[in-house]
């Protein structure tokens, strides 16, 4: 599904990612953990096509296509979805309008007709209910005045509607209380399928208690310094990142 090879990225001439290698196969969940400033969010942003990042080397292949060559909206239409750490407030554009515009953009890209208005409402209302959101949210401006938890839930709602193939969750657990975390995790788990992959960027083990990853990678100083199974996350929670970083310096 996704193959990242020797990816190096600069921000304002500063090296942030210094050779990332990562293979994500269909149906897999990868957690990327690491201390602040290690480049986790940069990786998520580069994959989704945000400007301001200079790719200086390496490649990213997504479904046999060069991902880095596509503008952000084409990546999204191809099935790459970024759930933002800080979802943006967009006054004047209602949630339901954005959802419909986004879904129709994908359908058009895939040569399908626009979604029928009634079918669309049925679809959206079902997903809203599953995420324990109030239907009123649909008619409010995108994220405007939403609490932190509501914003994150809204991201998962969009993800559920757009049915991406590769979901990148950037610190989706930050700012969530336990109840909200559980709802968001349930939402993600319900989307798990053999042909859908996830990359979860997170600081903490706690999200991984609810969404069980297949692989855990530790990113520090712009490189993946170690990888392992879910047990690695537990070890990190216990010992912190220090021992790994020290080890890397020693090596």
């Amino acid at each position: 599904m996704l193959s990242i090879k020797d990816l190096t990225v600069n921000v304002n001439d500063k090296k942030i990612l210094k050779g990332i290698n990562l293979e994500v196969k269909a149906g897999e969940i990868h957690a990327i953990m690491g201390p602040n400033g290690s480049g986790k969010s940069t990786l998520a942003h580069v994959l989704s096509g945000k400007s301001g990042y200079e790719v200086t080397g390496g490649s990213v292949t997504y479904q046999d296509k060069d991902l880095l060559d596509m503008p952000p909206e084409i990546r999204a239409r191809e099935g790459v979805f970024l759930a933002f750490q800080y979802p943006v407030e967009i006054p004047g554009v209602s949630n339901v309008y954005l959802l419909k515009a986004a879904l129709n953009a994908i359908r058009k890209y895939n040569g399908l007709d626009e979604v029928d208005a009634m079918d669309f409402l049925m679809l959206v209302k079902g997903k809203v209910k599953a995420l324990e959101m109030d239907e009123k949210f649909l008619y409010r401006a995108v994220n405007e005045g939403f609490s932190g938890g509501e914003k994150k839930r809204n991201e998962i709602l969009q993800m559920a509607i757009l049915e991406p193939k590769l979901c990148i969750l950037d610190e989706t657990d930050s700012g969530l209380d336990i109840d909200a975390l559980k709802i968001v995790a349930d939402g993600v788990n319900s989307l798990r399928s053999p042909d859908r992959s996830f990359i979860m960027v997170t600081h903490y083990q706690r999200l991984l208690d609810y969404i069980k990853p297949d692989f855990v990678h530790v990113l520090a100083h712009g490189q993946i310094i170690t990888s392992g199974g879910p047990e690695l996350a537990l070890e990190l929670e216990e010992k912190g990142y220090g021992w790994l970083e020290d080890g890397q310096v020693a090596a």
Binding site: P71, E73, I90, V93, A101, A105
Partner: peptide
Amino acid sequence: SVFYLQSRCIDEATARNMLTFA
């Protein structure tokens, strides 16, 4: 905001137009 809309499948020109309209 423009990037947020792009990440939701909306092309840049439409995104700018949508934000201005809003």
